[in-house]
Write a protein that binds this DNA or RNA. Structure first.
Lengths: 215, 215
DNA sequence: TAGATTGTTAATCGATTAACAATC
DNA sequence: TAGATTGTTAATCGATTAACAATC
């Protein structure tokens, strides 16, 4: 069995491999080599080979990997074939967009419901998903065994919501709020931080212009 | 003047420092030390000190940094005080949510308009922002000098949209589509890839349960 | 002064890359 | 067989951490 413990870097590249293998744009033979994936994605081929080795052990010299099987192995490794239940807190614009996004099941995420502190939102539905009042949260989480919580509240409320989620049994938090969340050991916070992305974009533009102007 | 060329890792941490300094939760003295920031965010203090040194040179032994000035320096370094124009392509659910998001100006991003290939969307407004047909894109970008393009179309269309953006003068692409984009040298693609985040969440849960079950 | 804090220089760690042996 | 491709072992690179000197 391949090693289940991979580096964060590897884990971040695996979805790109899967995406490439699924895309109709790529080469369409029965087999696919790490080398060709590397070339298509602009990566070093040894990196790809090492990454694939942690997901599959079916690579054959000269032949490569069986495309269909590698896809299945990646999907399984990434948990796409084993859906996890999640709940979302904060049914504002972003929260509703996520509730309505139909692509998550494909990635093994099943959002059961949204929660919001605003009582006027309670009872509404977004894309067939109920928005419930906050006091229903602990019960639902514990009863169903929800382990993933999605935070889409304003930054100031994020920590309180996070604490509540963890109290209710959540083990992994997907945080869209611009806040640093304090959590106990063993709980994962995955920040989807737009401010970080924007900083990288802005820095790229500044560097480009300063280079052009300077040299 | 502090060094303008910082590592990607540093750049990713700077917004967290700024966020912490702005937050009312933190200590509220006139001065703030790298050590205290490090402690609050769970980072090594030398990392924070090195990061801050690339943004400011006003740190004083025993005293630390003047909070207000450090905030200004971070904002300036991150480009929050120097807004960049952007356009968005793909006015579906996610696209509309981003168009409507009122927090971007705070981060120096100003979305001028949305574009969509669907003619039935053209002419609509979302939060005061026009949705325009695709054929208006090149002209607007060039006329205004837009350098940032946001892609929120389905994966299959992302590369074509990306090419069009670059043709129209865009230098940095913020890609929300699940697709690997091929771009010429000098163009930045910043992927906001939900699949990657979900992979990290899913992996955490798997590891937690396998550890619990195994040992 | 004494001690907290800064900034720097050296050591450690981990990831990437390069070189190579194994194999279909 | 020959050559493409895999997987592994060693070398390189960069980031983090540790140790230390400087200073208000």
């Amino acid at each position: 069995m391949p090693d289940r413990c991979v580096s964060k870097q590897t884990l971040q590249r695996l979805p790109a491999y899967l995406n490439y293998l699924r895309s109709p744009g790529g080469k369409t033979g029965k087999n696919v080599s790490a080398t060709s994936i590397a070339e298509a994605l602009g990566l070093n081929d040894v990196v790809v080979r090492k990454d694939l080795a942690s997901v599959s052990s079916k690579g054959r010299p000269k032949v490569g990997y069986a495309r269909a099987e590698l896809i299945r192995e990646l999907e399984s490794f990434l948990g796409y074939d084993n859906s996890q239940d999640a709940i979302l807190v904060g049914a504002g614009k972003l929260g509703q967009a996520l509730l309505a996004y139909s692509g998550f099941p494909q990635y093994g995420l099943n959002i059961l419901a949204g929660f919001d502190a605003d009582p006027s939102l309670a009872g509404r539905e977004v894309a067939g998903k109920k928005i419930l009042p906050m006091d229903k949260l602990p019960d639902l989480c514990r009863r169903v065994g929800v382990h993933i919580g999605i935070i889409t509240v304003p930054g100031g409320q994020a920590q309180a919501v996070c604490d509540q989620l963890i109290d209710s049994g959540v083990l992994a938090v997907w945080n869209f709020a611009n806040a640093h969340l304090q959590v106990p050991r063993g709980i994962l916070v995955q920040n989807e931080n737009m401010a970080v992305s924007l900083a990288l974009l802005s820095n790229h533009l500044r560097e480009r212009f300063s280079t052009k102007g300077g040299a």
